[in-house]
Design a binder for these strands. Sequence first.
DNA 1: GTGCTACTTCAAGTCGACTTGAGGTCAAGA
DNA 2: TCTTGACCTCAAGTCGACTTGAAGTAGCAC
Lengths: 143, 143
Amino acid sequence: MTVLDIGEVARRAGVPASTLRYYEEKGLITSSGRRGLRRQYDPGVLERLALIALGRTAGFSLDEIARMFAPDGRPDIDRRMLAAKAEELEARMRELAVLRDSLRHAAACPAPSHMECATFRGLLRAAATGVVPAPPKRTPGPR
Amino acid sequence: MTVLDIGEVARRAGVPASTLRYYEEKGLITSSGRRGLRRQYDPGVLERLALIALGRTAGFSLDEIARMFAPDGRPDIDRRMLAAKAEELEARMRELAVLRDSLRHAAACPAPSHMECATFRGLLRAAATGVVPAPPKRTPGPR
DNA sequence: GTGCTACTTCAAGTCGACTTGAGGTCAAGA
DNA sequence: TCTTGACCTCAAGTCGACTTGAAGTAGCAC
């Protein structure tokens, strides 16, 4: 019993089967075969799905994720790109830290409106003068 | 000259005017008045826009952002919600750290395919057994 | 007063990431 | 054998966050 039925994968990974089919269509995962019409998956797909979920919550698009863990055309470029993505994450984490601090302060601050609080506005200014360039195109969404 | 024309705001904030109109329609920002048909903005809108951009890159939807900085109906609920959002951010940052480490390792690791590397798979497993529940619905899109 | 141009409204379009629906297939249990 | 139910394909729909396009308007320079 070394392969998993699509329903089993869906259950274990916590995603609907339709999403698995969609990911397969996009080339993010592959099924190891079929039993009749039914897709069968190698258990490794679960790790791959965890990775995809992680990338999604980190704000990467499916295409970006696909590129991050592509079948490795030229490893050098690949590695440079991965390092660059790691840097992107680092930057995003710094932004999140600012936002987290802003929210924590806002939650504790007695000012009637947060915008009237000097500390809050200072945090925002710090964020604004930081990198925070043009807002990210589309996003995703994530969702 | 204490008010800004929409074009000026767009230029300074680095977003198209159409986005400003859209944000206004959604109640995320307000114009302080009009000169003829043209919207005029109070300079404080720039901080608010920085905040919105920050929230977007942190993965919040416009509706969530609107709620975070609502006109303050009940401050208590509001503050509890802000604290909860801060916790969410904390969790997201932990996930990002895992992904960053995974990417850094993948960039340095000599294994032909990342999935064949035990360290990498270990990081993934850690991520998978962590919180990383069902993938976030819709997103977002943020991109 | 005539242009120019940057604005205005409103409806419709786009994009990513899925989901839903209609109609069909097939392996396994009663 | 028949039914059931979980799967299949393919097209179309949805949702958030905007963008684009058409048609109109008004402050400012001339």
